[in-house]
Computed example of a mutant assay.
Amino acid sequence: MRLAFAALAACLLFPAAASAQDCANAADQAKLNECAAKALHEADTQLNADFKEIETRLADDADAKKLFVEAQRAWIAFRDAECGFQSSGVAGGTAYPMINANCQAGLTNQRLMDFKNYLACEEGDMSCPVPAAE
């Protein structure tokens, strides 16, 4: 009884840890799909936050900001098309949401690394399109 209460308390106090543990031990396709969607959501949330930070840094350069937004829109179209292709082998199946979300999360995390590099540019680095933080 004590062990069950301790496990329940841990899940209530540390939902993220409990969720990560649930995903590590996912036993059915529905849970795997849910975990893949969660990973995509987390990556996309971070990407959007960094996107806004880059937009803020480009506020004084309308041309660069426009190019950045266009590049991001094109990247999203590429990501979605690429993942549609990568997951086409399981289209219509129960694993499709997982395969597609895992692909999108992977590509989003790669794009996030690009954003992190942009945000880490040093003042005077002419090869970097994003101004350094003030």
Rank of each mutant, 00 (worst) to 15 (best):
A4G: 03
F5H: 03
A7T: 06
L8T: 03
A9R: 08
A10L: 12
C11S: 08
L12D: 06
L12E: 07
L13V: 05
F14I: 03
A16Y: 01
A16Q: 11
A17S: 09
A17T: 09
A20W: 01
Q21G: 02
D22H: 08
D22G: 04
C23G: 04
C23K: 04
A24H: 07
A27V: 07
A27M: 04
Q29H: 07
Q29D: 07
Q29C: 03
K31R: 13
N33C: 11
A36I: 04
A37G: 14
K38M: 10
K38D: 15
K38W: 09
L40S: 09
E42F: 01
A43R: 06
D44H: 09
T45C: 02
Q46V: 04
Q46T: 08
A49K: 13
A49Q: 12
F51V: 05
K52C: 02
K52D: 13
R57P: 11
R57Q: 10
D60K: 06
A62T: 10
D63L: 04
D63Q: 10
K65L: 13
K65D: 02
K66H: 02
F68P: 00
V69S: 01
A71D: 03
A71N: 07
Q72N: 03
Q72W: 00
Q72A: 01
A74K: 14
W75F: 07
W75R: 11
W75E: 11
I76C: 01
I76P: 01
I76G: 01
A77N: 13
F78S: 14
R79I: 06
R79D: 11
E82P: 03
C83L: 10
Q86A: 15
Q86S: 15
S87H: 13
S87T: 15
S88L: 08
G89P: 11
V90N: 10
T94R: 07
P97I: 05
I99W: 00
I99H: 00
A101E: 01
Q104I: 00
Q104S: 04
G106P: 04
N109L: 09
N109H: 08
Q110I: 06
L112W: 05
M113T: 14
M113Y: 03
M113R: 10
D114T: 10
K116C: 02
K116V: 08
K116S: 05
L119R: 03
L119Y: 06
A120D: 15
E122K: 14
E122D: 13
G124P: 09
G124A: 09
D125R: 06
D125P: 10
M126T: 15
S127M: 14
S127Q: 13
V130C: 09
A132F: 12
A132P: 11
